[in-house]
Structure formats: C-alpha cells, structure tokens
C-alpha cells in the first residue's frame, strides 16, 4: 500500500449525504438529509439538542448505520469504504471521556498515531505544547477542558483532510476557547482542510465559518453559504401602518412589532431589492436594512422551522 494515495477529487464535495435517514428504534434521528459540504468549507451545523448533529457525524464515521440513503466523504462511500473514509477524518466526539482512559496522554497519543500513516510527530509535539498537554497524566484523570484539548491534538496531528468537530469548545474555559479557535485557524492556514462542526456558540466562530446548515428534529431545514446568506437574508426595520401584515409571498422570520404597532423588525428572505420593493408596495416604509450574523440567521431559521409544519 502506498503511503499516500493520489486521486483526482477536484470538484467532489468533502461531504455529501443522499437522503440519509437514521433511526434509533422507532425514533427518526435523521430524516432525508442531503448535506453538501464543498471541499475547503468551514461548515457549521446548527440545531437544538437532539436535532441530529452528532448522528450526522457518527454516520460519516460509520458508527451509526443509515437506515436509508447513503453518505460519501470525498466521493468514498462511508459504508463500503469505511476504513479509507475514516483515514481522512479527524474527529472530536461530543463526549469528553475516552475508552482508553487507563492510558496516560503520551501513551494514548502514541497508540492513536500508529493508525495514521500521515501522523506528523513534530506537529503533534507542537500541538502538545500549544494545548499544554501533560504527557504523563492518566487520561481518565483529566478535567473536561484538558480532555478536550487532548482530543484536539489527537484530531489535528495527522492533518486530516476532513475535521468533524462535535461541540469542540464544550468544556473549555473562555481563554482556552479563544486559544483553541486561534490554533484551529492556524491549522487551517497550513493544510487544506474541510471542517464540519456543530456548536451551540455560533457567535464565537462567526468569522471562521463560511457555510451554515440548520438541522431541526432530523431534517435539514436550511443550508447556505456565507455569500448566499449575505445576499438573501436581511434584517429589516420598518415603519408600518397599524393594521399592516407582511406580504404572504415574502418569507419572513421572527417578526417583532413595537407596542404601538407602528414599528416592526424582522428577518426577510430574498434579494434585498426584491424584498424592499414588495415591502414598499405593501405600505411599509423601510427604515433600515442590515446583514444578519451567522448566529442570528441560525436562530431565525430554527425558529422558523419550528413554527412551520
């Protein structure tokens, strides 16, 4: 077997799922999910607890087997070519505990390194310093934050083409969070990497992420790039007549009205000029338009998904 395999994967998405469905018993954890993560993207997966974020990652690792549909990583089927797929992935699971907690950090790193021919020992050492890992400590005596940092070293040291980060900053204190994200940004500058991460703190990766996917009880209700977000989702402040209602042909999210009923704020989906025109013709005066943050968009889309059948 060659050390590294050359394959032309130009234009192949890093992650693609095709009508992926997953069941736990009778409960549908993923429902016809069609995920597309372009190569090089930093894709943030938003959703409430139990929306299926972890399940998506687990099915990419073939830890959960799809009930219907399939998934591909760099064009490789996750079930038929599981070992090859997993060789491309650095994974930080939601849980901080490690099955091999009886090893010390150095031993665990050594053990894991032997499974990745691409493991970069010098880089692992750099990461150990950056993440302040004490090699002699037993893994199951680590605090949540320390365990997380060790998981980062384990996931990054082989410079995997795909990182799956499930709540990666969970358990880290604020200082460690910002340091960790800075190291991640550096890592991304050094090696071509696609990232899929789930997080409850979208604000902290606002400037890192360039794609957003929103999962709602197993369904992917939205998936868009930062640029699409910027051109199609806007927050409007309007002066409206008291009996005004939003034009039904406009998709609007979380509308809020002042008590007098004459001022209204809300997020509208569509090209700005288009939305503006429709609002004006409905009798509203646009007072302000602003872009929305990733966090705001995720929340608005989540709220929207919840209110619709």
């Amino acid at each position: 077997m060659s050390h590294q395999e050359e394959r032309d994967i130009t234009g192949v998405p890093a992650v693609a799922t095709f009508a992926l469905s997953l069941r736990y018993g009778k409960q549908l954890a993923l429902n016809n999910v069609d995920l597309r993560i372009p190569e090089g993207a930093i894709y943030v997966l938003a959703g409430t607890n139990g929306a299926g974020k972890s399940s998506v990652m687990k099915s990419l690792l073939n830890l959960e087997r799809p009930h219907a549909g399939c998934a591909e990583v760099f064009g490789l089927d996750t079930v038929a070519r599981g070992p090859e797929v997993r060789a491309q992935i650095g994974y930080i699971p939601e849980s901080h505990a490690h099955d091999y907690g009886w090893l010390n950090c150095g031993q665990l790193l050594q053990h894991v390194s032997s499974f990745y021919p691409a493991w970069d020992h010098a880089y692992a050492e750099t990461l150990n310093k950056a993440f302040d890992i004490t090699l002699g400590r037993r893994v199951d005596t680590l605090s949540k934050g320390e365990a997380r940092r060790l998981q980062f070293v384990l996931a990054l040291a082989h410079r995997p083409p795909l990182l799956l980060l499930d709540e990666p900053t969970d358990g880290l204190d604020p200082l460690a969070r910002s340091r960790t994200l800075a190291i991640l940004a550096e890592h991304l500058a050094d090696a071509p990497t696609t990232v899929m991460m789930s997080t409850h703190h979208i604000g902290e990766i606002e400037s890192l992420a360039d794609h957003l996917g929103v999962l709602q009880t197993g369904k992917l209700v939205a998936q868009l790039s930062r640029d699409e977000l910027r051109t199609t989702v806007h927050r409007f402040v309007l002066d409206v007549p008291e009996d005004w209602n939003a034009p039904t042909e406009l998709r609007s999210l979380d509308l809020r009205r002042s008590r007098t009923g004459r001022e209204l704020q809300g997020t509208f989906i569509g090209k700005q000029a288009d939305v503006r025109a429709r609002l004006s013709s409905s009798g509203a005066t646009v007072r302000d338009v602003s872009a929305v943050t990733l966090e705001h968009a995720a929340l608005a889309l989540l709220n929207d998904g919840e209110s619709r059948p």
């Binding site: 090089g40 800075a182 190291i183 940004a185 991304l188 400037s207």
Partner: peptide, 17 residues
C-alpha cells in the same frame, strides 16, 4: 502578518485573509 498569523489572531478563516 502572514495569512496564518492574522487568521489565528482574528480567528477568521485563512481563506478570508
């Protein structure tokens, strides 16, 4: 600053820098 440094400092996507 290099792309790497600035990306880490601002915690932004290196591609943006």
């Amino acid at each position: 600053p290099s792309v790497r440094e600035l990306a880490a400092e601002l915690v932004v996507n290196p591609r943006t820098v």
